[in-house]
Design a protein around this nucleic acid. Structure first.
Lengths: 214, 214
DNA sequence: AGATTTAACTGAACATTGTTAACTTAATTA
DNA sequence: TAATTAAGTTAACAATGTTCAGTTAAATCT
């Protein structure tokens, strides 16, 4: 009965081919400018074939969205080697921002575009089990902040609020840049401002040396 | 020679009709789901007519984008009555977040969608004079922060970095909500978290009472 | 006032998009 | 070998933004 498995494997390979091609095109031409037909042309199949492997375009985008979260989660995990929770939190911030800056299309998919969320909501009606993969990453951040609080390294506050705030800050930085709202800064200074902004957050939030001089 | 003027007036009225209708549809159906044809149908003209008043769809969106910035700028100005620059800054934050939460489609247009930026860049090639309207609002924030710094109420840092950081933080909060990335929180708790997050920022940044207890 | 130019508007088309249904062909099973 | 299943394509659909040739209606000129 090896045939069933081979078929399954081929199916998976085709899915992967479609996904990889889609992602490559997204990187080349930008998220907005990739069509099913482009993908089909690139892999030299007819457009209709793609619909044998994915329900619709949002399904492709959603799957890439999941892959992005896998990647991000793995990156987040690399900070686990750091003992000091505050230092770990800072590293997490850096990792998050780097990921966004190096993979803006992935980031857009994951945190800005509407498509994936549509799909998630559509799915949640049927299968409640498949609870969205993003909350895992958020939980990780939340846990880290909890540790910081417990160690007295972080202002006491509602944990949800604190975690959301830190996330929002990092998201604000990268999403303003990804969606090109920083035209007031010279192109070559942007990366510097991003890094400084991260420092600024940690500085004002936790570092007494940078605190207000009275 | 009153005819030329009447014609000009009618032209402006038609533009306004199109813009208002477009905005109304955006509010009703969401930004993504409004087409030129919908707008045309609503005002009972043919689709082609719209192209007599606007170059293309991005042009409509860009014009609404400008109107949004007018509105926001006016709101910002209302904070000028506040003497204490730090308090004024806080109020500015509140105003910004309220604007976003009450006019999510406008906010999306102004700070998330790609269309308007495309238009701005396209225009900047020809006419350098029309420098983008958003920087005026940013300048306002910047100035406010500068005053805070001079009064010793704000951590000393590169002014650009500080202003960008504060903006990014507020933007992060509202854009995560507008683009529906907060599914982990119960619907009815979201507004509360938003408000708390704003407090959290100001608390950690400036308020010693909320500072780390050693 | 009548002829002519100008402005406002439309109908029909174009190319592109996502998506689907009927069909063909190749592979697997009986 | 015949029947069934899977994989893929072709051709079409409706919806989108956009354009262009034409048609009225208004304004201007003589």
């Amino acid at each position: 009965m090896g045939i069933k498995e081979r078929k399954e494997l081929e199916k998976q390979e085709m899915r992967k081919l479609i996904l990889d091609t889609a992602m490559k095109l997204f990187l080349e031409k930008g998220l907005e400018n990739v069509t099913i037909r482009h993908i089909a042309e690139k892999i030299e199949y007819s457009p209709a074939t793609i619909y044998l492997y994915f329900k619709d375009k949002d399904d492709i985008i959603y799957t890439l969205h999941r892959e992005g979260f896998e990647q991000l989660y793995k990156l987040q995990q690399t900070t686990l080697s750091i003992r000091d929770p505050l230092e770990r939190l800072r590293k997490q911030g850096e990792v998050y921002v780097s990921f966004a800056m190096e993979n803006p299309e992935y980031y857009d998919l994951m945190f800005i575009m509407r498509g994936p969320v549509r799909k998630i909501k559509e799915m949640k009606i049927k299968e409640m089990k498949e609870w969205d993969i993003g909350s895992r990453s958020f939980e990780f951040l939340r846990q880290n902040i909890k540790e910081c609080m417990e160690a007295g390294l972080f202002p006491e506050a509602d944990l949800d609020v604190a975690a959301f705030s830190v996330w929002a800050y990092a998201h604000g930085i990268v999403s303003l840049i990804i969606r090109d709202r920083c035209m007031m800064f010279p192109e070559d200074k942007i990366r510097h401002i991003v890094d400084e902004a991260l420092d600024f957050m940690f500085g004002t939030m936790f570092d007494d040396k940078v605190k207000i001089k009275l």
